[in-house]
Amino acid sequence: MSQTPISAAAVNDDIGEQTRLELYRSQVNIREAEQRAFDLFLQNMVKGTSHLSLGQEAVAAGFAVAMKKGDLSFCTYRGHAHTLARGVPVEKVLGELMQRDNGLMRGKGGSMHLTSEEHGVMGSYAIIGAHLPIACGAAWRAQYKKQDDVTVCFFGDGTTNIGAFHEALNFAAVWKLPVIFVCENNFYMEYTPIGDVTAVKNPAGDRASAYGLEKIVIDGNDADVVYRAAKTAYDKARAGGGPSLIECLTYRHSGHSRADPAKYRPEGELEKWKERDPIKIYRERLKSFGIGDDVVAKIDAEVRRVVDDATEKCKAAPNPPMEILTTDVYADGGWAWRN
């Protein structure tokens, strides 16, 4: 791919150039698409709500790139990133955010429920904690049918304080399920700092021992660190070693949702985290492994073109037709509840 000579460190590296470029492309793709979603929101073209992962790209990218085809993702309303990271086209995601007919679910789900079964994205869930038990069920199916896929479930720091989190962790541990719980600790629930409402310092990590699990707290802004943690957890799960709970320390650059200006954050906090911007970190990483600026610039341009193109297609796309209002309530395709 790159014409630049690769350093010895890169040759002996556990991750390798091709994977690194994938990790980079995935993060940039999320960054560009999320930034575009925000811009479209300001133009009143993204309706309803939206929860961006700007600043949290490394978690989604690291876990997704380490997955195999057939592995399953369960996300939250802050799930555009995880959906894109599994290879769902930007147009499909933006289309759903813009509530157009070309959206992933043709406008029937909305930004909080992105789902693409063919990519292993088994839904995005907007009731805090709901999907942790559901992810257990998907993993139970793999265990029961002796299939070797793993299920990865993403959620926030605030989610560790709801009952479903604790039910799911215990259940997964007792049944030794091949499920990975990924807590993206961005230090805030909605507007309240997580430390103000949580009895322990590490909302996920400090709970792990209650379920007989190892405390794993990692730098969630370094895609290499995330990728390695993901691989270790997947290998363990595939080998029958049961679940993992991984807390990724990260930070969202934008507000909680929509145009939340995030005034509740202390001065200087955002700036401090921006120095540890995952994309900035990763550009430096690529450079340190001898990958040239031209390669990086080419990826940036390609991603930008895809996002631009998707934006235009979405703007031109029609609204969903009325015929789909009553489809797929029941498995027969319709909504009949009586004869």
Binding site: M122, A138, A142, Y144, T151, A168, N170
Partner: peptide, 25 residues
Amino acid sequence: LRVRDTPISEQAILGAAMGAAMTGL
């Protein structure tokens, strides 16, 4: 493997049933 006792976790019971149903059981 087919008839399983669960913890007292009604959310986990129904959530697990749902995830299993979504993926083929």
